[in-house]
C-alpha cells in the first residue's frame, strides 16, 4: 500500500477550483426550488392547507367516488 501523506494538500485534488458537476448543481438548486414551492403549498398560513382539512375533505366525498389507495 503506497500511502499518501496525512496533509490536506495531498489528500484532496489539487484543482480546488474545479467546478461542481452539472448534475449535482441541478439537484442542489432544483431541491431548493421544489422546497420553496412545497413550503408555500403546505403551510397553513400561506395556502390554507391543513392535514385536518384534508381529512375532512376525504371523508366528506362519497366513499365510492375515491379510488382505493
Amino acid at each position: 500500500m503506497s500511502d499518501i501523506p496525512d496533509t490536506a494538500e495531498a489528500m484532496e485534488a489539487k484543482e480546488t477550483s474545479r467546478t461542481l458537476p452539472l448534475g449535482w448543481r441541478l439537484l442542489f438548486w432544483g431541491l431548493i426550488a421544489w422546497g420553496a414551492a412545497y413550503l408555500w403549498l403546505y403551510t397553513p398560513a400561506t395556502s390554507g392547507w391543513s392535514q385536518a382539512g384534508e381529512y375532512e375533505k376525504a371523508t366528506a366525498a362519497p366513499a365510492a367516488a375515491r379510488p382505493a389507495k
Binding site: M1, I4, M11, E12, A13, K14, T16, S17, R18, F28
Partner: peptide
C-alpha cells in the same frame, strides 16, 4: 474522507464539493 484516499492512494475529487456538502 480519510480512509478512502488512504487505501486507494487517490486524492478526493473536489475540495469545493467537500465544502458545499459539509456546510449544507
Amino acid at each position: 474522507y480519510y480512509f478512502l484516499p488512504k487505501t486507494t492512494g487517490l486524492p478526493i475529487f473536489s475540495h469545493r464539493l467537500s465544502i458545499v456538502s459539509f456546510w449544507s
